Amino acid sequence: MLVLALDTSTPAVTAGVVRDGRELAVYTDTDGRKHGELLMPGVQAACREAGVTLKDLDAVVVGAGPGPFTGLRVGMVTAAALGDALGIPVHGVCSLDAIAATVVAAGTLTGNLLVATDARRREVYWAAYEAEGLRLTGPSVESPAALAERLPGLGLVAAAGTMVEQFGLPVRGPATPTPAGLVATADLAADRTAVPGPLEPLYLRRPDAVPPGERKAVS
């Protein structure tokens, strides 16, 4: 099964082509201010390197966050547009799950794993996982100090993500979702005929922008 995997939930812009769980090509750029400009060129570059065309794809998998609103919607809208244009299914997965899946696949965990990424506003997105990859808790968003208070009760032996250096745990890669991790999280091999549900972004908090209130009458 040939799958295009996308993620824009972190400053990294990631696109990759995966066949039956093996990465054929990966494009990554870490300029978090240019998700919109970089993603489709990245998709085209990954397809060229893999020697495939968009018409060859069987499915698209996209990281659904949690992530900042502007960057996250770039990946999800692009995935939805490609799926619609190509007539193929689009599967949204938790981006933190995808990071955990890659760590678990390395087979070196002996206990629970923390995954944490930058939520801005001096906060982190995080979730905890068993050594086999099952999510224990999360995803959630809170300050690093609040998260640090929770760590002693989670049985953690390692951490992965862009915001884990401060928690005193051994750090494992990757820091951002990989194409193989995204596809593994979607678990397409379990049922290739499964129809994915609607794409739902994991923002975990309300956007800054709100509709303007009713204008006050001028006396």
Rank of each mutant, 00 (worst) to 15 (best):
D118K: 05
A116G: 06
G111N: 14
G63D: 03
G65Q: 01
D84W: 13
P66R: 02
L96W: 05
V90R: 01
V104D: 06
A105T: 10
V115I: 14
A85H: 11
G111S: 13
V103E: 00
A80P: 02
S95Y: 09
V62H: 00
L109W: 11
D97I: 06
L109C: 13
A101N: 10
T78N: 12
G75D: 03
A100N: 01
D84G: 14
A81K: 05
H91W: 15
T110R: 15
D118I: 08
N112Y: 09
A81L: 14
T110W: 07
T78C: 14
L86A: 12
I88G: 05
G107H: 14
L114Q: 03
G83H: 03
G87C: 12
C94Q: 07
A81I: 10
T102L: 05
V115R: 04
G67T: 05
G83A: 06
G83Y: 03
V93Y: 00
G83M: 03
L114A: 07
G87D: 09
H91M: 04
A85N: 10
A79E: 07
L72R: 02
C94G: 09
L109Q: 13
A106I: 12
T78Y: 06
C94V: 09
S95L: 09
V74S: 08
I88C: 07
A101C: 08
G107A: 14
H91Y: 15
C94P: 10
G65C: 03
V77S: 13
G75K: 01
I99K: 06
D97T: 10
P66Y: 03
P66I: 00
L86P: 03
A85S: 15
A85Q: 14
G111D: 15
V77Q: 02
P89H: 06
C94K: 04
L86Y: 06
I99L: 10
L113N: 07
G75I: 02
V77L: 12
A105H: 12
N112E: 14
L72N: 00
T70R: 12
A98C: 12
L72E: 00
G111K: 13
T110I: 14
A81N: 11
G111H: 13
G71I: 02
V74G: 05
D84H: 13
M76I: 15
D97Y: 09
R73F: 04
D97E: 14
L96G: 08
T117N: 11
T108R: 15
A80G: 14
G111I: 10
G67S: 12
S95V: 12
A98E: 06
D118E: 07
S95Q: 06
L109E: 08
A105Q: 13
I88T: 12
I88E: 07
A85T: 14
A80S: 15
A79S: 07
G65R: 00
A80L: 10
S95C: 11
R73M: 06
A85P: 08
V74I: 15
N112P: 11
D97G: 12
D97N: 15
V77R: 00
A100M: 08
